[in-house]
Nucleic acid binder design. Structure first.
Length: 306
DNA sequence: AAGGCCATCAACCGCACACTT
DNA sequence: AAAGTGTGCGGTTGATGGCCT
């Protein structure tokens, strides 16, 4: 036998709250408090609402000193740091940000902050290129959905983010250093978000046709080569032996840097290994496509500030 | 201009925990 | 100790508005 429902579902109103309902709830709580019983509260004040709904409305919207929107860079950093440490424990994160609710932070994280961080990484990545094809937000979305995994290049340098002010003490110890302005922290966060780095990848012994793969290369030549210089407007296809590999996100390759990117194999019974693929793919570059006259001015992928 | 798609956010739902009896 | 109940939390959904084609 399951537990009894908290209210009569057939006789409670659902959906957005009206100003009248807000006024009723707010004025009652301001005068009498919640009375320690949310379930009984709506009946007391004549609201056809579930007690849980009243509680949520009060906590997330009606109670004093609630802030909505306009998250600052400092707040972003605190949220990111705590997310790295404790994951999606929004109520604890909210407790570190006065005036913020767990619901607000959760929504902000899921809809903006996560994407902002991903965008920041990709923008950093793009800025390492000499020039680039004009890439729209939609291109990135399409590219994401086509890729089996998100694969991040090794970060060339730490992000320079001002350290957040010390938050109130947490009710539990946090493992490790929690600043967000270092490579390791950022890397942990991106990994948590589904990103992968070159040294995380388990190299397949045999490359299967028509599969998405991540590729990597540690550039050790004395020449700086860019895919932008050499690739076609829609990426390019490199052929070696029986294997054809198409790269859909060409990027600049700088000397001495470890890079990762993803692509799709499109033939055959070849048993080329990971390392077989890498060298010819990157260097020497394939010839420039006929009719290609260079890259358009880059459009920013994502706004970095709200 | 219109329809489709996408981002955002308020609100709901179900589960787990805490507290009481 | 066990059962019942209220509360808190996190994941998910649905409505809405704006943008894009």
């Amino acid at each position: 036998m399951g537990r009894a429902p908290c209210c009569d579902k057939a006789n409670v109103k659902k959906g957005p709250w009206s100003p009248e309902e807000d006024t009723k709830l707010k004025s009652y709580i301001e005068q009498h408090g919640t009375g320690g019983n949310w379930i009984a509260l709506p009946q007391k004040i004549g609201l056809k609402r579930c007690g849980k709904s009243c509680r949520l409305r009060w906590l997330n919207y009606l109670r004093p000193n609630i802030k909505h929107g306009g998250f600052s860079e400092e707040e972003d950093n605190i949220i990111c740091s705590l997310y790295i440490s404790i994951g999606s424990r929004w109520s604890i994160i909210a407790a570190q940000l006065p005036g913020r609710t767990d619901n607000d932070i959760k929504n902000y994280w899921n809809t903006r902050l996560k994407k902002k961080l991903l965008g920041k990484q990709r923008k950093d990545q793009q800025h390492t290129r000499r020039g680039s094809k004009q890439v729209t937000k939609r291109d990135i979305i399409n590219q994401d959905s086509a890729a089996a995994v998100t694969y991040w290049p090794e970060l060339p340098q730490p992000m320079h983010v001002p350290p957040p002010p010390p938050p109130p003490p947490l009710p539990f110890p946090i493992q490790g250093g929690q600043s967000f302005n270092d490579h390791a922290s950022l890397r942990r966060l991106l990994t948590k978000l589904g990103g992968r780095f070159s040294d995380d990848v388990i190299v397949p012994s045999v490359v299967q046709p028509n599969n998405q793969y991540c590729f990597e290369n540690n550039i050790s030549t004395t020449t700086t080569t860019t895919f932008d210089d050499v690739s076609m407007q829609n990426g390019f296809t490199a052929e070696f032996g029986e294997m054809v590999v198409s790269c859909n996100n060409p990027m600049r390759v700088d000397e001495g840097m470890m890079y990762g990117f993803y692509g799709t194999t499109s033939s055959s019974e070849s048993a080329a290994t990971w390392s077989d693929l890498i060298g010819p793919f990157i260097y020497p570059p394939p010839p420039m496509a006929a009719g290609f006259h260079g890259w358009e001015e880059e459009e920013p992928l994502m706004p970095l500030s709200t």
